[in-house]
Structure formats: C-alpha cells, structure tokens
C-alpha cells in the first residue's frame, strides 16, 4: 500500500511537471568574457552570439531561462552539481567530455587560430622551426589538447585560465604566439596594433554543443528540436550574421 502511495504521488508530481512545462525554469551557464559568443556590453548586459541563440532557444522551448556566469574551470563540475542545467559556452564536443555530460547536436564550429606579433615569421607547422618557442593556450580547451599532443616537448606550453591573461602576456612578449579559438583571437589579438594571424586555422573536433547532465535525455531531445527549428527558420542565420562575417553554422 505504502509503495503504491509513493508511486502514485510520484506519478502525480511527474504529471504536474509536464503540465507546467511552460513556466519551467532552466539555468544556462556562460563563461564571460568570450567575445563575441558571450560578453557584457557597455551597459553591463550579458550579450553575444550564444546568449542570443540561448534566448531564441528558450523561447522556442517555452522555458524561463536564467543565465548564470561560471568560470570555465568549474563548468562541468558545476553542471554535475546542479548549479545550472545547460552549458552554452562554446564547449567543443570531445570524447572525454562526453563521458561526463550529454551533448546536443553541434550548433557551431570554429577553427583554432594562430596569432602572434607582426615579426613572427615561423611556419607553425614546421616542428623544427617551432622548437623552443613559447605558445599560450587556454587550459582545458581543444586547442590545449592539440598543442599538447602534437607539439608537447617541442614548444613550451603556457596554460591560462582566461584569454585576457593570455593576451596580456602575448603583448608583454612573454609568449611568441597563441593558439586560441579563432573568433576569440580575432576579437582580442587582432584588434591590437602590431599583431597578425601567423598560421592557417586548424579545424578541431566535432563542433560545439549544448552540454547537459547525462540523465536529462528528454531535455536533450527538446534542445535538439529547438536548435533544428532555429537553424531552418532563419533565426540562426540572422543571429550569426550579426556577430560573424564568416560561416560557423554546423
């Protein structure tokens, strides 16, 4: 009898859950600043490509969304600790991450870009020439993995928590070059005098997806459906063209 009661109350709670889907609350985490994906504008408002896409997605899913700011280091642990429900912070889909979180279908892909001062003339794919150079990457990114696996032991790798600190050290000539997500480098390095792109962009990984807890399979289906609608009805392209002059759609 008792078991039945519990089962019944559970069923009731579940039914109530679906009935109130409209005013369901979702918390989405971003790591700022990561221009132009998520950053604060001059008024201190959170904005950017992913923030606007998240807004459109929430509208499509008819959910109330709250945006949470979370440093990159604590993203996945924060998700698992239920501090938020979704990560839409340019998280590239990797096998290692997929063991801990559930990814949606990819919603964009940007290459990793090489940036350095104007007098940097070394071919970044020539390992002999790169020997002894100091390269900056953001800790735990796919760019970090790429440099660690392909150039570890050849170049000195410096890992940074934020892109800001890394660019500061590039400006201060502590780094010969940085290998960073292309749009980020474009916004933070190329906007400064005396810096240029120093190598061909490298396509890395399977693109960027929304990360969720593994058990939230229903949520993932909803997210995928919403993203597909946005990609097809032109909303995605409108937002993308606002921030990029090249194609990142995936």
């Amino acid at each position: 009898m008792k078991k039945l009661m519990i089962a019944a109350s559970c069923a009731l709670a579940l039914a109530a859950g679906t009935a109130h889907a409209q005013d369901r609350n979702l918390r989405i985490a971003f790591d700022v600043p990561y221009e132009p994906f998520e950053y604060k504008d001059d008024n201190g408002e959170l904005t950017g490509f992913e923030v606007e896409l998240a807004d459109a997605m929430c509208e499509e899913m008819q959910a109330n969304c709250e945006f949470v700011i979370q440093a990159w280091d604590g993203m996945i642990p924060g998700l698992l600790a239920r501090k938020f429900d979704l990560i839409m912070s340019s998280m590239s889909i990797t096998a290692e991450r997929a063991e801990r979180v559930l990814f949606s279908e990819p919603y964009y892909n940007t290459p990793g870009g090489w940036f350095g001062p104007n007098d940097f003339n070394t071919d970044v794919t020539d390992m002999d020439a790169m020997k002894g150079k100091t390269i900056g990457v953001q800790r735990g990114t796919t760019m970090d993995t790429f440099v660690t696996e392909n150039m570890g032991g050849i170049v000195t790798i410096k890992r940074y928590t934020t892109a800001d600190d890394m660019v500061l050290d590039l400006e201060g000539q502590r780094l010969d070059a940085v290998f960073v997500d292309y749009p980020v480098g474009e916004q933070t390095v190329l906007t400064k005098d005396g810096f240029k792109e120093v190598g061909e962009p490298v396509k890395l990984g399977e693109g960027v997806g929304v990360a969720m807890r593994k058990r939230d399979k229903d949520l993932a289906n909803e997210v995928n459906a919403a993203l597909r609608t946005l990609k097809n009805d032109g909303t995605y392209d409108t937002i993308m063209q606002k921030y990029f002059n090249y194609d990142i759609k995936m």
């Binding site: 280091d73 800790r139 890992r159 600190d165 050290d169």
Partner: peptide, 22 residues
C-alpha cells in the same frame, strides 16, 4: 599557478581540466 607557473596547484589544475575530475 595564476601566473602560469606549474607548481603543485598548477599541476592539479592541468590534470583536473584534462579529466574533469575535481
């Protein structure tokens, strides 16, 4: 470790970000 020195904490942060195992 905030100024890129890989001390004990720096090593822990690198390993943590590689395996997501805080």
């Amino acid at each position: 470790s905030v100024v890129t020195i890989v001390d004990l904490t720096g090593a822990a942060r690198n390993i943590y970000s590689r395996f997501y195992a805080p």
